[in-house]
Design a protein around this nucleic acid. Sequence first.
DNA 1: CTGAAGAACCGAACCGGTTCGACTGTCTTC
DNA 2: GAAGACAGTCGAACCGGTTCGGTTCTTCAG
Lengths: 351, 351
Amino acid sequence: MNIGEIAKRAGVSRSTVSYALSGKRPVSEDTRRKIQRVIDDLGYQPNASARALANGRTNTIGLVFPPAGNHYTGMQLDFIGSVTEAAADHDYDVLLSPSGMDSDRSFQRLLGERRVDGAILMEMRLQDDRLDHLTEVGFPSVAIGRTANPQGSWWVGLDHTALAAACVHHLADLGHRRVAFVNRPEPLLRAGYESAHRGLDGFTKAAAERGLTVRTYCCGDDAASGQACLEQILHDDPATTALVTLNEAALGGIYRGLAQAGRQVPHDFSVTGVVAGRWAETVTPQLTAADVPAEQMGRLAVELLVERLNHPAAPARHHLLAPPISLRASTAPPGPGPTGAAHDLGAPAHP
Amino acid sequence: MNIGEIAKRAGVSRSTVSYALSGKRPVSEDTRRKIQRVIDDLGYQPNASARALANGRTNTIGLVFPPAGNHYTGMQLDFIGSVTEAAADHDYDVLLSPSGMDSDRSFQRLLGERRVDGAILMEMRLQDDRLDHLTEVGFPSVAIGRTANPQGSWWVGLDHTALAAACVHHLADLGHRRVAFVNRPEPLLRAGYESAHRGLDGFTKAAAERGLTVRTYCCGDDAASGQACLEQILHDDPATTALVTLNEAALGGIYRGLAQAGRQVPHDFSVTGVVAGRWAETVTPQLTAADVPAEQMGRLAVELLVERLNHPAAPARHHLLAPPISLRASTAPPGPGPTGAAHDLGAPAHP
DNA sequence: CTGAAGAACCGAACCGGTTCGACTGTCTTC
DNA sequence: GAAGACAGTCGAACCGGTTCGGTTCTTCAG
């Protein structure tokens, strides 16, 4: 069932059918109805490949994220979901590309074979060869995260520097003096991951400002690594009373390590960090954290990209988000604090 | 840079370039090299839309999953990741479609506009109109999960009945007599979600077999619901000593509820269920559970689909998986058990 | 009454690949 | 020495849309 078939049955030419559908030239109400009837009867839908070939637009956007070698985190899931839905709202499909580097085959295909109109990049690095390549060839893209020099490019990012600093200030205000920082895995830091670097920066500077004694750690993206990392922290400095983490996946392990060491959260040890809200709520006590607004970010990225696709000459835009810290139940002043079931458990007891 | 440009520069016809690339007809070593040189110089890659239009294959598979109204779970993330990577290994791209129903626009586009060669369906229901529609129009698809009558269709599934039963037997063997079942959210059960129904069945039958006293609950896909559900369980029957859950996302809340009620896992209360391994390890004590092999399932689904696409007439195939229960630390005989830090914390203490 | 504008439609070219049929040589084979 | 077989190449048709230019017919201003 192609457009020729429709035209024949409606007694008009192929171009008339096309114009009736696109509305790019006037078509009489009469023939429009005739055509629509045939279309409804046959359940015709125009072939996407043919359309893409003819007008040069695929109505598809590429979502580029690194492969699962380092396991996916919950945050990535939220991005994928929100990007997909936001794209659907704008009548775009989403093509997934598991690429960490410019040189990945799947990434090359996306661009070279013109499978997508534009791309959204996840897991940005301070120097990102994927983005460099895209801007070089003038391919429309929006990054979730920003490079070291983001001027002139489109992105929606999180102010990790400010968020990590806010965590430090929160702990310092509570009276903590010896604080650890649990970062993403070391390979990612070495690779230049933006969040890991800016988070570390923000933490370090704010800690210096407040005169805190700090140690920083890298930690694998899983519970076992989190537990091991916490053991290391307490081994290196048993007087540590709090930590800040960017590592969502390690959180469960960190809590386990603390329990195993006999430290009660938050009385004996405070934990905070930058974590997507719904994951912060799965641990007990619930994590006081800067909630990453992953859904909003995915949606914003799509909106920026759609805008860029519709107005190719538009000047670069971006959104820098800095959500406030959500006070939950994982931080308290250092030292033996007040004991009480409600505080203990991260949620008010039922009346 | 199209194929005509390559042909011109190499001094041959367009068809020769095409045959040199596809190898479907012999081309002399000499001209092949000439063509390859030009291609390398210009960095030519054939246009995907044109190719798809000409030979009727998009080299793309659709991944159909329901929208995030009910939040995504970790398991879905693992499916998406493994499907995408497995597809890349077979030179397929993955198009995401957030569709719960046959009537969703995004689902219709996938098929009607011929954007994909085949589809993988997630979140199956016992009666699934999406699958019905696909088989009716003869569209190649593989389901992750199976309908009530899966004969003749392609799928890779988990034996939820057996897994839930295994959990019951495990608990019964330990001596538990009053056990609760925490299912997925009620709307999903009503919609006929396969895992929810078969899991419930397996639980109920095995419990009857072992003469256990049981109660079954539906629970929202988030921590707060998990906590509320647990409170309800203990309210309804304070003598309950164990539960089985299919609800990964509620797990953190269930643990919190138990702690709040003053029940120690596993001494005072045992928890088990069917959960992806890496999520079972994030809670403390780590969850004894039938680990959902999400990565393997995603990969198998892609392999089945690729096989089906390559051999359109091949008879339907499927894989029914039933992973064993991984003994971790969240179950123990009922009543006051042995106390010990190691057992308490779900991981051996360091020597 | 004439000329211009615009509505409504058609035919043909085009997007960039693939594939079929035909043509030319060269090498076997009986 | 004629008949095939086959390697190697080309031209043209085709996939299913979009879009440009042109034709016909009304309508309306001058």
